[in-house]
């Protein structure tokens, strides 16, 4: 890279809470080093100064929930060489994807005084449903170390070290005692994508899946174990209908429990 121009970094927001963008701002110690290596060209959360595209690396936060989003994501894709989605909203649809299980028109009519002012889609969907995505970084919010890892890997042109195995492996690498086995606390870790560093089990809580499904998630077997530990059908439904409710494996599992609850 040496003498070449600095790669341009852009951060984009769709339907989201801004928490994942904040993870980038939270990298206080690393921001100077980052600014050395990249031109922060478009990051409205941090600065209203905007440089023109195209951009070498685009970080996309948020899900697609409006007709305007649908147009804007195509535009973002067009001006981005490498597009990374960050967070549960961008990778799965976020908590706002709970609308996918209900009738949006009904919400709109109840919530807003002037429903006719509201223009929204029936569903909240991940970015990858609409444009090709080069890498997905999971989490709600994303983990800042992982974000730096992805950016660092991009800069040097290598694959990021972001394993898609269970949270359980993170527990075991840390030496955290399993809350399922030693306390009987239901935990979603065995079907959840690693990345957080097993925060909840380290505080004697069960994982609730904010990094979404891991590779080959056996949600059916884990649900049976949750029931055995005393979780109700409603509790099982609720845990799969969290911020990653629209991720395929979690959606299918929650649909099963929704039917059983009916």
């Amino acid at each position: 890279m040496g003498k070449r121009r600095k790669p341009k970094l852009a951060v984009w927001k769709f339907a989201s809470c801004d928490g994942c963008q904040l993870s980038l701002l939270n990298c206080v110690d690393e921001l100077p080093a980052l600014a050395e290596r990249v031109e922060i060209a478009h990051f409205l959360e941090a600065s209203s100064a905007v440089m023109k595209g195209p951009y070498d690396l685009s970080l996309v936060e948020g899900s697609i929930t409006t007709p305007r989003d649908l147009e804007r994501i195509l535009q973002v894709r067009r001006v981005s060489k490498f597009l990374v989605t960050i967070g549960a909203c961008a990778t799965a649809g976020g908590i706002q994807a709970l609308r996918n299980f209900k009738d949006v028109k009904e919400f709109v009519s109840i919530v807003y005084a002037r429903p006719d002012y509201i223009e929204t889609l029936e569903t909240s969907t991940p970015i990858a449903d609409h444009v090709p995505v080069d890498f997905e970084l999971h989490g709600c919010p994303i983990d800042k170390r992982q974000l730096l890892e992805v950016i660092g890997a991009f800069l040097i042109g290598r694959r990021p070290n972001v394993p898609s195995h269970s949270v359980c492996i993170e527990c075991k690498l840390k030496g955290t005692v399993c809350v399922m086995v030693a306390h009987g606390t239901p935990c979603l870790g065995p079907v959840t994508h690693a990345g957080c560093g097993a925060i909840c089990p380290s505080y004697h809580r069960g994982c609730y899946g904010c990094f979404g499904p891991k590779e080959t998630p056996n949600t059916a077997s884990l649900s049976r174990e949750w029931s055995r530990l005393g979780a109700s059908e409603q509790e099982i439904l609720n845990v799969f209908r969290g911020v990653n409710a629209n991720a395929e494996a979690f959606r299918k599992e929650s649909d099963l429990h929704a039917r059983r609850n009916d």
């Binding site: 269970s166 492996i169 075991k172 065995p190 056996n218 077997s221």
Partner: peptide, 13 residues
């Protein structure tokens, strides 16, 4: 395989 979570706890311990 219908029960196994491929969570890897067994190999870690």
């Amino acid at each position: 395989a219908t029960r196994c979570l491929s969570c890897a706890n067994c190999t870690m311990v």
